[in-house]
């Protein structure tokens, strides 16, 4: 087990470093010079030359990378091109929001995904199963931003149950916070839940058709115990990977969903920064999101080993 964790850890760190190099290089892929973006309407040739020297753009790339990564490891992502604010402030302010969004959406995705998947798998071919299959396929195909718009039209505007936009920090008012997060959670969670449901259903059907499940039934073990203890536990092994895949899916979705609900997280920050070409923020967001995904992959790999005894002995 320890060896498993160690090897996964090392490869994660390797991937992280490689990714950080790519993210660093973004600044140099800009056609022309970043100075033009920074200066915006103030981009005169003199100003550009002055700024380029100031930014140290003349140094050799490895030096610049070293400088950058050292700063990043201290949490210093530089300052926004646009308003000169330290990027770190933005990230610290917005990361918790996105993290909560991710956690809530993941909880919804897992709860609904597993329930629907399991219920559907218990009676394959039944009405419930067929309608769940239909829903799942539809869920994968509907653009989540359309879903978000429709949900907010219904629950916030028509019914007035939930705030239409915005965000109340959990420290300010936990109930308002919960309400302001519900629609984004569902908009993000539903699509992922369909993916999980689909996988869970398949895995459950496969597991419930195995000999050991028949054997358990043939031993007179109650069906609910068979489903939970043999069925779900075994089916979870492939599904846990799929749940892990949902982290990048939800992060990708949050980019647009946050915009629809004006949730002040990394997603709306990303879209705004992309439209503004505010590269330091884009870089920081990429680093944070990549770390998040790498970290969950690590956790998934380890829990995979924990769930699957075969991996444990390694």
């Amino acid at each position: 087990m320890i060896r498993l964790i160690l090897t996964r850890l090392i490869s994660s760190v390797g991937i992280f470093i490689a990714l950080s190099i790519l993210i660093f290089l973004l600044m140099y892929l800009v056609p022309g010079s970043v100075a033009v973006i920074i200066l915006d309407d103030a981009a005169t040739p003199e100003n550009i030359a002055k700024l380029e020297a100031e930014l140290g753009l003349d140094d050799p790339l490895p030096t610049q990378y070293a400088r950058w990564i050292v700063n990043v490891s201290k949490g210093d992502f530089g300052t926004s091109f646009l308003n000169g604010r330290p990027v770190r402030d933005d990230i610290i302010e917005k990361f918790p929001v996105t993290l909560w969004l991710l956690i809530g959406a993941l909880v919804i995705a897992v709860v609904f995904g597993l329930s629907v998947g399991i219920l559907a798998s218990l009676k394959p071919g039944s009405l419930l199963d067929r309608s769940s299959v239909l829903l799942v396929t539809l869920g994968i195909s509907i653009p989540n931003f359309w879903l978000a718009v429709l949900l907010s039209m219904l629950f916030a505007v028509k019914l007035g149950w939930l705030p239409v936009f915005g965000y109340t920090p959990i420290t300010e008012d936990p109930i308002l916070w919960f309400k302001s997060m519900l629609l984004p959670w569902f908009s993000l969670g539903i699509v992922s839940s369909t993916l999980i449901a689909r996988q869970m259903r398949g895995a459950m059907i496969e597991v419930l058709n195995t000999d050991y499940v028949r054997a358990a039934r043939a031993s007179g073990i109650p069906e609910h115990w068979v489903v939970i203890s043999n069925g779900i536990k075994n089916a979870m092994i492939p599904v846990i990977t799929v749940i892990g895949f949902q982290v990048p899916v939800i992060i990708g979705g949050s980019l647009i969903i946050e915009l629809v609900f004006a949730t002040p997280g990394l997603g709306s920050l990303t879209i705004q920064s992309v439209l503004d070409q505010d590269l330091p923020i884009v870089q920081a967001v990429l680093m944070v999101m990549a770390s998040l995904v790498i970290l969950t992959n690590l956790v998934i790999d380890i829990s995979y080993g924990w769930l699957n005894p075969k991996m444990r002995v390694l």
């Binding site: 399991i118 219920l119 218990l122 569902f186």
Partner: peptide, 21 residues
Amino acid sequence: MKKKLGMSLLTGVVVLAMLFA
């Protein structure tokens, strides 16, 4: 029993729906 399991899952869904409402 399948029914029991189904019920407990359904309960979860209902609770969430109530929170929502």
